[in-house]
């Protein structure tokens, strides 16, 4: 009698609807939403992203067509205007600056995101493996990183671009090659401290294979740091690319990027065509600031102890 009662109540307990848990990610999301600056910056980033994706639909002119009515008289006729469809004005060759800015945004964002993406994937796996395996493997892997880091990468990148010619793939290759180094160091450091936490020991005691421990326990617990660093890495990548483009070694015409546009704009500043500098510069600045604020917000949200 008592037994059956017990069994019934057990069955009842087992079939109760499951309570939803509040994951650490959800907590972080809530804290992030409360951060005004980060939320505004996120909105800015979304707007810039939309501008890059849908800007071409709004543009009245394609980015490579020269407006012959303006050409040669950019300073007088090329100013921003609604009537002739050059919302941001034109450049010296009479090309529509709006659609050029759209394209520059696309290229710059892509460079930033791909660079950071490579850093996240390669750097995380490399650093986590080195840190978790430890010992000699770790020493060799991290010395390799040290060696790569000691190379003045900007110099090498410029050399590569000069020797092999300027191309998008060269640029990605160059930026991808160096972007993961810092990430792998940060991740390794974190892994070293995670490795001795009891829950990793518990997994090892349970016989969970090493690769599974890295993927299931180490990496998810690293993601906070990785996410923060990656958002701060995107603007750094954009900056590197801009710097190279500013030197005239970046993407090749007719492709363009923020750096290239700013460089052109700065070159013609004296002729009174200030808009050629201001529009790309504006996008460049707000995006960089937004990324930094979002990164800060992420750090505060993911690591509440740090404040």
């Amino acid at each position: 009698m008592i037994e059956t009662q017990k069994m019934q109540s057990l069955a009842a307990r087992l079939s109760q609807p499951e309570v939803k848990g509040r994951s650490p990610w959800a907590d972080a999301r809530r804290r992030f939403r409360r951060n005004r600056a980060a939320m505004v910056s996120l909105a800015v980033l979304i707007l810039v992203g939309l501008f890059a994706i849908f800007g071409n639909q709004i543009a009245a002119w394609p980015n490579d067509e020269m407006d012959f009515s303006v050409m040669g008289q950019a300073a007088q006729l090329g100013a921003p205007s609604w009537t002739n469809g050059h919302y941001f004005g034109t450049d010296d060759l009479g090309r529509d600056l709006f659609s050029r800015t759209v394209q520059g945004t696309q290229v710059s964002l892509m460079v930033g995101l791909i660079g950071a993406g490579i850093a996240v994937i390669v750097g995380t796996l490399y650093g986590a493996t080195a840190g978790y395996v430890g010992g000699r493997t770790d020493a060799v892997m991290m010395r390799a990183v040290d060696v790569l880091m000691s190379i003045p990468y900007m110099f090498v990148l410029i050399l590569l671009l000069v020797i092999f010619g300027r191309s998008m793939s060269m640029l990605f290759l160059g930026i991808g090659l160096i972007s993961w180094l810092d990430m792998s160091r940060i991740v390794r450091g974190q892994t070293l401290s995670l490795k001795h936490r009891e829950f990793i020991e518990a997994a090892r005691a349970a016989g969970v294979p090493a690769w599974r421990i890295v993927l299931r326990h180490i990496v998810p617990n690293l993601l906070g740091v990785v996410a923060v660093y990656a958002t701060l890495l995107v603007p750094l990548m954009i900056l590197s690319e801009s710097f190279i483009s500013f030197l005239g070694l970046g993407v090749q015409e007719p492709l363009t990027s923020w750096g290239a546009l700013i460089s052109e704009g700065a070159g013609t500043m004296n002729y009174g065509t200030l808009w050629q500098l201001m529009f790309p510069l504006f996008f460049f600045c707000i995006t960089l600031f937004a990324f930094f604020f979002v990164g800060d917000g992420l750090r505060d949200a993911l690591d509440p102890k740090d404040r």
Binding site: G21, S23, P24, W25, R197, E198, F199, E201, A202, A203, A205, A206, R216, H217, P220, N221
Partner: peptide, 18 residues
């Protein structure tokens, strides 16, 4: 052979459900 650890919270992966 299984083990129960000293620090109850630290021995559970914070990113996993129970």
């Amino acid at each position: 052979i299984q083990m129960v650890f000293q620090d109850p919270l630290a021995s559970l992966d914070p990113r996993m459900t129970v």
